[in-house]
Design a binder for these strands. Structure first.
Lengths: 125, 125
DNA sequence: ATATATACCTCGCCTGTCAAGGTATTTTTT
DNA sequence: AAAAAATACCTTGACAGGCGAGGTATATAT
């Protein structure tokens, strides 16, 4: 078993940023949108869901997560609104738009192609 | 059918750099090493092989390719030597090292995990 | 009282990608 | 014979995503 997350990000010596990060890159948006396809949600919950779903092998860093929200909202793929919590910390909920749904479907289809492509390309035999 | 490569890289307006690029990112090194696992080769040939293997759907940009060679050589995963062509343009051949082989195997194993992980994460149902 | 969990956010650096530019030789087309 | 395309290499500079490190505020558990 390989733990994907928590590769060392050593600023002093050693390589910066793990391979795993770059392997996930390009899927962040789709992963978030996949969650919003099911129901509106907020950052903290989405991240927890990812961790649970991957048995702790992967988590989005907060900075990455919130950067992605800004990017997706700017692109018109999601819209946000504040929840009306009477207790606990406030939550900013996100909702996927029709544009976002289309983008999600496109990326999902693309993934099917790319997955097979990479399978073929990294074979040594 | 989706053409992975040749998404527009519009510097003026529109989104910069395509999703596809980011989906491949993190596999470039492994793809190159996979080719060198079979036999020594040189940049131009490796790139042609990738294009053929993917039916033209994907190609490494030259800048990306040569950047990767520098990176891999610096890391000790490959070594290079000039071919002794008597005709045609000179070729710089690359050879994978033991360290490179180990790195390749590690990335390959990682891919198997990550592929399944992404499959699960981008499901909407 | 202190620590942990929930929940949000931004700044600035790092890294891989690649457009755009270059050089030199050989083969193919006009 | 001249022009174009293919082979084959290379570097520079800008860009965008990831994320460490820092921050705020409330609620619960120790």
């Amino acid at each position: 078993m390989i733990t994907i997350y928590n590769r060392i990000h050593d600023t002093f010596g050693g390589e910066m940023m793990s391979i795993a990060s770059d392997m996930i890159r390009g899927h962040t948006d789709t992963i978030i949108l996949a969650h919003l396809m099911r129901n509106d949600s907020y950052g903290y919950e989405i991240n927890k869901a990812i961790q649970t779903s991957t048995e702790g092998k992967y988590e989005l860093k907060e900075a990455t997560l919130y950067t992605a929200f800004r990017r997706l909202e700017q692109a018109g793929y999601i819209v946000s609104y504040w929840g009306d919590e009477t207790t606990g910390a406030r939550r900013r909920y996100y909702s996927i738009t029709d544009l976002g749904r289309a983008f999600y479907e496109k990326n999902r289809a693309e993934w099917d192609e790319i997955r097979n492509m990479i399978d073929r390309l990294i074979e040594a035999d």
